[in-house]
Design a protein around this nucleic acid. Structure first.
Length: 260
DNA sequence: ATGCCATCAGCATGATGA
């Protein structure tokens, strides 16, 4: 069972690239972020024609998350993070696919810092961690996949010095991620690449992709039930190099579940 | 210190992203 996470940076303007990637990578589950689309304008028909069921949580212009399942309908188990019921931003959706709980998240960026946006990031992170702790011990395999907007360590970025003041590298952001991992979660891509992790994001500026001047901010975390099923992981790096691409590349894991 | 490049909304340019 292949589970992927992909920040599409606008699903309407990149639908063809999304469908192309689905056809070639064939993830069984795809967690999408930054749809930048209201629910009514999600390209549900095109995604269904491509063979995927979908549950989506959009909003106009910004944010937005969705879970796709190949040949199946994801069973939605929640949207929005508990404790943040008044959150006006669509950043979390959760579903069950083939007995696996899939949490799809788009954690706030947090820039500029300091300021209300960074405060919002930390508040959101804290509530998410509370929810993650409950999920960890629920007894089912759980995968938390998405754009965490955190560079966990200096090994996860080409040059930490030039990003030192960014919200993605702040000690508070990293401490929240470390606290999450401390609940027992396995960072699947890290586990499969102990020496040199692949990046998942390259800004559009200054040929950063061509220079592989990237950041690793898209993560897939596994609870104790899911971690023993991990067969492999990777990043579809070439997707980022296509004309009109998102600034993120898809990251994925392979779990020993199902018949595919 | 700032812009880089790109989205959306909406039709010129601002808010936003990371």
């Amino acid at each position: 069972m292949r589970i992927a996470t992909f920040n599409v940076n606008g699903i309407a303007s990149r639908l063809d690239l999304l469908l192309e990637w689905l056809a070639e990578s064939k993830p069984d589950v795809a967690c999408l972020q930054e749809l930048k689309s209201p629910d009514a304008r999600l390209p549900v028909d095109a995604i269904r024609r491509a063979g995927y069921g979908i549950v989506g949580f959009g909003q106009p212009s910004w944010n937005g998350v969705a879970i796709l399942a190949r040949g199946r309908e994801p069973i939605e188990t929640g949207r929005g993070v508990p404790g943040l019921e008044a959150d006006p931003q669509s950043r979390y959706i959760e579903a069950v696919v083939d007995g696996v709980i899939i949490g799809c998240l788009y954690l706030p960026n947090g820039n500029p810092r300091p300021g209300p946006k960074f405060d919002y990031k930390l508040r959101w992170f804290e509530s998410f961690n509370d929810h993650a702790k409950k999920l960890f011990g629920c007894g089912m395999p759980v995968v938390l996949a998405g754009d965490y907007n955190v560079v966990p360590t200096d090994a996860d970025i080409y040059n930490p010095a030039s990003w030192r003041n960014d919200a993605l590298l702040q000690p508070e952001s990293r401490a929240a991620f470390t606290q999450l991992i401390g609940q027992g979660w396995t960072d699947a891509v890290r586990a499969c690449y102990p020496d040199r992790v692949p990046y998942t994001f390259w800004t559009y500026w200054r040929n950063r992709y061509q220079r592989d001047a990237g950041l690793r901010i898209d993560h897939l975390l596994l609870n104790a039930e899911a971690a023993p099923m991990l067969l492999g992981a990777g990043v579809d790096r070439n997707v980022r190099g296509r004309p009109g691409a998102s600034d993120h590349a898809p990251a994925w894991i392979e779990l020993a579940i199902g018949n595919d």
